[in-house]
Design a protein around this nucleic acid. Structure first.
Lengths: 180, 180
DNA sequence: AGGAATCGTCAGTGGTGCTGATTATCAGGT
DNA sequence: ACCTGATAATCAGCACCACTGACGATTCCT
């Protein structure tokens, strides 16, 4: 029975294990923090992107910007629309496009929920002192930049714009790596 | 079009986004590195745990140790057994239990694949200097310890032993957080 | 001996994301 | 003007993963 210690050690020594678990914990915290506002972390991300730019964006561009699949974006916007947080309008310049805009309720929800998100992230990082937390995020961003720029081109749909991967909810990603 | 920059900024400022993406990248690297050995990261984790302790472990204990579901463990061991990497034996002391042991091929595979895993982790951390990388893993471990001990009790199945969550593969986790 | 508990197994479910086909719309060449 | 090709949104279907709940087989406790 002395192996338990070595076993736990073996686990926490694995970077993948640590990262997965840390991510899962954060995702759980985010989900709980956002639950009172009736939005999934994924939806909050979409709301943020919609609100972030003044120009009206099509669903496709939205999806590409977040790194979400277009077909998934349809469902997400369906949900947001059902909650009255966003509205779909047909673009007058290009009637193929659906321009998605925030409603007032959407703006309010985004503001409140995003504050909850920041608080949840702070709670997640609470065990770390400020300097360590800052270094952690900086290191993560370095890794993100270094690894993403290399492969972003493969999944970038909108040229001239870095694609990215889905927001921080705890959903699984399939991400086929090397399928012919 | 000046919004693109602000958009990417908005993304990389989100901790959840950074963590998810970093984790996904690492998981992809692991999957690719392990592909030549025909093992999933998840399977490598199971192999490691089996090999880690001298005592023979039942599937249930294996699952509890890794934080994997018992029913999932069945499928994983099925796969490993199909590849000839592990063997199931009925315990003579308790014939309910299946004792899982590594075959010679399993030992070889584990040794080689685990080396590949270490290399993949190193490649993932390559953009960081040694000190930063060490701080990152230390911070992750701190977060892991702080957050896990609080909620581990809820999912610990085997008493006296810290449960943990699945290994570093890029599969999704459902992890019901607060279901009555 | 008999009831409670444990182990392994399997079928079913929910949730996620992706592929492929469909419809509507725009842009370009002739 | 017309046909061709490309793009936007949508929908149905598939694949994957993990979990829930049930079931026989076996063991432990009283």
């Amino acid at each position: 029975m002395t192996d338990e210690v070595g076993l736990a050690d073996l686990l926490t020594r694995r970077l993948g294990y640590l990262m997965k678990h840390a991510y899962l914990r954060l995702a759980d915290l985010l989900g709980e923090a956002l639950a009172p506002y009736d939005v999934h972390p994924k939806e909050l991300g979409v709301l943020s992107v919609i609100a972030a730019d003044g120009a009206e964006r099509s669903q496709n561009e939205l999806a590409a910007a977040i790194g979400m699949d277009r077909t998934t974006m349809v469902a997400v916007i369906d949900g947001l629309q059902g909650k009255g947080l966003v509205e779909r309008h047909r673009s007058v310049r290009d009637r193929r496009r659906n321009v998605v805009t925030l409603t007032e309720a959407g703006s309010t929800c985004l503001r409140d929920a995003d504050r909850a998100r920041v608080e949840a992230e702070a709670a997640f990082l609470a065990p770390l002192d400020a300097d360590t937390a800052a270094r952690l995020t900086a290191a993560l961003r370095t890794l993100y930049d270094a690894h993403e720029t290399g492969s972003a081109a493969a999944r970038a749909v909108v040229p001239g714009q870095d694609a990215a991967v889905c927001f921080g909810d705890r959903t699984g990603g399939t991400t086929p790596s090397a399928k012919p």
